[in-house]
Design a protein around this nucleic acid. Sequence first.
DNA 1: GCGTCCGAATGCGGATCTTGATTGTCGAAG
DNA 2: CTTCGACAATCAAGATCCGCATTCGGACGC
Lengths: 221, 221
Amino acid sequence: MRILIVEDEPTLGPQLKATLESTGYAVDLATDGEDGHFLGSTENYDAAILDLGLPEIDGLTVLDRWRREKRNFPVLVLTARDSWSDKVAGLDAGADDYLAKPFQTEELIARLRALIRRAAGNASSELTAGQVRLDTRSGRVTLAGEAVKLTAQEYKLLSYLLHHKGKVVSRTELIEHIYDQDFDRDSNTIEVFVTRIRKKLGADIITTIRGLGYQLDDPQG
Amino acid sequence: MRILIVEDEPTLGPQLKATLESTGYAVDLATDGEDGHFLGSTENYDAAILDLGLPEIDGLTVLDRWRREKRNFPVLVLTARDSWSDKVAGLDAGADDYLAKPFQTEELIARLRALIRRAAGNASSELTAGQVRLDTRSGRVTLAGEAVKLTAQEYKLLSYLLHHKGKVVSRTELIEHIYDQDFDRDSNTIEVFVTRIRKKLGADIITTIRGLGYQLDDPQG
DNA sequence: GCGTCCGAATGCGGATCTTGATTGTCGAAG
DNA sequence: CTTCGACAATCAAGATCCGCATTCGGACGC
């Protein structure tokens, strides 16, 4: 899952980035509205964390522009201000959630999880496909009840596929959502990880749609 | 838009119902967890507002049960409690948003709007013609309910025709949209793929307009 | 310093695409 | 109604592309 943080505070921004990366997200950080708007317009994120108080361009403006451009990733708005009228404005501008500073990092992560989950159309924090079960909260994966040890990348890949169960996911899409900005697109990394996941979870878990991408079968599909 | 409110407080519940109804929603009100869970399981709502502190069954339990039953309408959780650990629990149980009492009605409405808007974004776009159904999100094609396996090119071609249902599409147009830039115009690839699609989906699915191109019939056209 | 994990390179095998020739069909004109 | 020409459909085969397995060097963490 790839996240965009738009935050100008010199300590909070990098700190958030580090925390989220250690949680398993690919994170890009923009330190002003201009940059943030550009990244959000040109790259593909699964969610964005947007500070309202920004230099150059106001956070609300950035959000509004994204929405006009039909950029529909979920946005979690951060603000120091605490009046509910600001919240209403933010929500109406297209924010999907709202968090007042100061906040607990854990709550931020929980809300982020919820946002991504909902954006993918999943309600439960447990993602399943056939015998495979993944708990987004604990990061555990089981196959028919048995715990399976996945590496970080394997987990990211599987997680993304599970979040988009039933959908055909292209290799490009996977690369864009598992890695951040700078990554060599010309490599067969995805294939390699798909192979490794298949070795651990069974070959039938991931279906190859030749020429289009990969797909996790919906049990009742 | 139809909303379910699960709220036991004798004043707040009816008051919310009245407010939302005046805003244009159809509202059902349940006053305990048992009733709330039943309504949420059997009726179709666009969103639910769920109080965590409930008699009989706890709100979190109700939410958890809905999610296990694959009831995926967005849920806005209300609570008197204010600790972030409760919020985390609620979000992980499958809540989509969270509001601490007391709250401004206006903020509640704004959040509800945001929830419904987001949920609507997940609607899968399906293209159909006769017995054929193509889901652009999952990339699946079915004929009379039966899944049909199409190759990449077949899929592209069919997809383009479905997007322009009813229109006569020339061979040139198809080539231009299925292939990138330079492609040998003097070839009968299109015919070949049309043949293959017809073999898989039935000969009547694509009509040939001699000298002009191909056409997908609109069912009611 | 050792083990694990990641990502790049390679070669293979098979599915898929394209081509060109052949056969089939439509429609207009005689 | 028949015939003819143009266009469309079909088929088979070679070429091509794509994905898979495997290996290996290096990075990273412990």
